[in-house]
Amino acid sequence: MAVETMTRRASDNAYLHRDFHGALSTGLAYLESRHGPEAVRAYVTHFARTYYAPLTHAIRDKGLGVLRDRLETVYAQEGGRIRISFTEDEMLLEVEECPAVMHMRRAGYAVAPLFFETSRTLYEAILDGTPYASEWLRHEPETGRCAVRFFRRTS
């Protein structure tokens, strides 16, 4: 029987491995089971403050439009349907279905109970140190459908 060989270059494919959502969800479930729900929020905050530091700086310097552009790009990349209402001081993000949650449902991965913290706590941490804050308005765990309000802090 012949030896089968496959060689691929990075440029042969697009980088979009949705199963990573399942790995992240498994990580959050592990973290909650071993260290409690606060550890999940602490981890998401730690990640946001390091990896997304350039985004935080850009929002602080240029305003909410930076976050709007990023959200549009990210959800478009993963095929998520969203609506954004935007003014310079306030933005409403409505996610019809979270593409991460829907992929996990389709693929049979367990969705961690605190998976929504990868949005709620993430946005709070990204906006920490900027003139803006976020408010989690509603959320449906089954589909990840949610609404988030971003607004300029009053004080």
Binding site: Y15, L16, H17, R18, D19, F20, H21, A23, L24, G27, L31, A39, A42, Y43, H46, F47, T50, Y51, V74, Y75, Q77, E78, G80, V95, C98, P99, A100, T118, S119, L122
Partner: peptide, 19 residues
């Protein structure tokens, strides 16, 4: 949402956090 294209730095940060 943390996009799947940014999972790897999140994964690495989880290792840091757990350690």
């Amino acid at each position: 949402m943390i996009p799947c294209t940014e999972f790897i730095p999140a994964y690495s940060a989880l290792f840091d956090f757990l350690e």
